[in-house]
Design a protein around this nucleic acid. Structure first.
Lengths: 112, 112
DNA sequence: CGCTATATGTAGGGTCGCTACTTATGAACG
DNA sequence: CGTTCATAAGTAGCGACCCTACATATAGCG
């Protein structure tokens, strides 16, 4: 998959991954690898800044914890984040519908 | 639809619009408006540079013509463009499958 | 003549994911 | 004890690319 096809959809992935549970950054990356069957292998330089953006936007909050001497910043959705996730899902459906309409067309552009 | 959700998918739209016919830039914009029911209203500053990129890449070629005193640069797909369109369609299917898998999940993230 | 639709184009900016690098700890291995 | 690897978080800077705004030109209408 080309690198930045994700442009504009990364937030949705992160919010969805945090839906119903709390995870730290590293775990989010691993979770995305798993659910995508390895197709999504996001570098830390992509995920950490994105999480901070989401926190600045008020969509997630973070707590520090220390597990086995290692610091973990654990994120979870806020109510605004839940709302944002809902909005992202709608936007995604609309987006795919529009693009599918252009790409698929049903069989060429067939003006009926 | 947020403006640059298109990021990385614009080429696919343009190639698909030119599939099986030849159009000039302005007509491409109108065609995309029509097939998307108005959801896609691309500014000329987006489309024209994109078409030149595609031409540099060898995916389309252009011919000048004058219709009613107005100059038109008419584009059509090359064989490489056809191939690229095919690749874009596959990439799009893969992309949506992956993102759908994360966003939909089937009902939360349900680790089975 | 002025205004709108048609038609193409350039300049500059801003976003955002990526590459590459840094820092730090615990565990395993010799 | 020292080296290396996995875990964990982070920053700096780059580059692609879509957008806003503007420039240019003609045809047609009032």
């Amino acid at each position: 998959m080309k690198p930045d096809a994700l442009r504009g959809h990364l937030d949705a992935l992160l919010l969805a991954t945090l839906d119903g549970r709390q995870l730290h950054g590293y775990a989010i990356i691993e979770a995305l690898q798993q659910v995508s069957g390895g197709a999504l292998d996001l570098p830390t330089g992509t995920v950490y800044p994105a999480l901070r953006r989401l926190e600045r936007a008020g969509h997630v909050v973070s707590d520090w914890s220390t597990v086995g001497g290692r610091k973990r910043r654990t994120y979870r959705l806020t109510q605004a984040g839940q709302k944002a996730l809902h909005a992202e899902r709608s936007a995604w459906r609309e987006f795919t519908t529009v693009i599918d309409g252009v790409l698929g067309g049903g069989g060429k552009w067939a003006q009926t």
